[in-house]
Design a protein around this nucleic acid. Structure first.
Lengths: 211, 211
DNA sequence: GTCTATATACAGATAGAC
DNA sequence: GTCTATCTGTATATAGAC
């Protein structure tokens, strides 16, 4: 069996997958027909079935492909102070969303669909969400122990609030009139107020209203 | 023309509308067939077309009906202090969402769909969002002028941050594993930290410090 | 107004040639 | 592996009787 055939096969398969991922992300599952995928990938409908058996299986494969860039890069955090780590994670989240608007929108859509709630891929996204939140909480905890953050700092709650704010900015970003500037601005405001509240003040000055 | 016919007609129309509103909210537009609406409303498919001309027009009518309970009840705010007004608005938002889970989910879905972005009904929802945010900002501004909140209070940013947090809690609420307790807890944490930051601290034992 | 029966279109999926 | 042609189900929408 000559290798060129194998390669061609892979190329067609990949082309279908790439096209399907894009269309599913942009239009959703129901609004994307296999005829459309076939047309844009420049293959026949039958070939899609030969490679993926059914629309549902193509969908799952496409989801997996879309999910590839979804991971948390914690390498850049080493050696940073707790405050900087928090800021870095917030920025990472923000940047990632802006680099993957379509697929983020898509996964957010999935999250809102009752019948897709058990999807394994959706489960992975939600796990990322949990990991991200847990990382934040751990950094707050570590910062509290190291005397960077106040004694009264509640790691879980602070992490939860940050995640909520980030998720909310996401929605604002998808509203047609939500300007990116507004989001950037609120991210900065979030960071400022967060650290105003939690940072242990430099020795010599007394924080207002808090012993 | 006897009145009973007129009344029967309205009843059938309303029944279709109610059924359609519920199904569209629960399942979305694409996943809801007119056959299903007809079956559950106990009428024939043809009658739906007689009343609403097309699925798209039924959809728009259903959207308008779903939107009816969407308004901001500002009556209960009269006479309250700024802090209480803010708390009240946050609670109103939270309660409203929990009483209208399905339709809120649906409108959130709409917000995420690129092709539905120009829908007039979606526009009304987004206007409500803006009005809510504006109300919050105005209360912060008023509170700042009255010496309730710190001088440095930034009304627009505080309002934006609250809205983001609320919208984010919304998403967490729709995730299968997002417990309602967590949301309640974060709402309280949001309020606590908000006022810790912004309230002008009480002055010692004398009430004289108030301008 | 409400129905049954039907037209029309297009979706996902299969058969079989090459 | 890839194609064309076709099957089958189901969706929106219409025609026409009552």
């Amino acid at each position: 069996m000559p290798e060129s055939e194998q390669i061609d096969s892979l190329q067609a398969r990949e082309k279908i997958l790439a096209t399907a991922s894009r269309l599913f992300s942009e239009q959703g599952y129901e609004n994307t027909s296999l005829a459309q995928v076939a047309r844009q990938a420049k293959v026949s409908k039958a070939l899609i079935f030969w490679h993926f058996d059914s629309k549902e299986k193509l969908y799952r494969s496409a989801l997996r492909k879309t999910l590839e860039p979804y991971f948390i890069d914690v390498d850049g955090l080493e050696g940073l102070g707790e405050r900087e780590q928090i800021e870095r994670l917030i920025d990472l989240f923000y940047d990632f969303v802006h680099e993957n608007v379509d697929s983020v929108r898509f996964f957010l859509n999935l999250t809102l669909q009752v019948d897709r709630q058990q999807d394994e891929v959706l489960g992975r996204v939600q796990e990322l969400y949990r990991v991200f939140r847990k990382s934040l909480a751990e950094i707050f905890e570590s910062g509290r122990r190291h005397g960077v953050f106040r004694d009264g700092t509640q790691p879980e709650r602070e992490a939860g609030l940050i995640m909520a704010a980030l998720a909310g900015l996401l929605i604002q970003h998808f509203r047609s009139d939500g300007s990116p500037d507004d989001a950037r601005d609120l991210i900065e405001h979030l960071k400022t107020t967060l650290f105003q509240r939690l940072l242990v003040p430099a020795v010599g000055s007394t924080p207002a209203g808090r012993p």
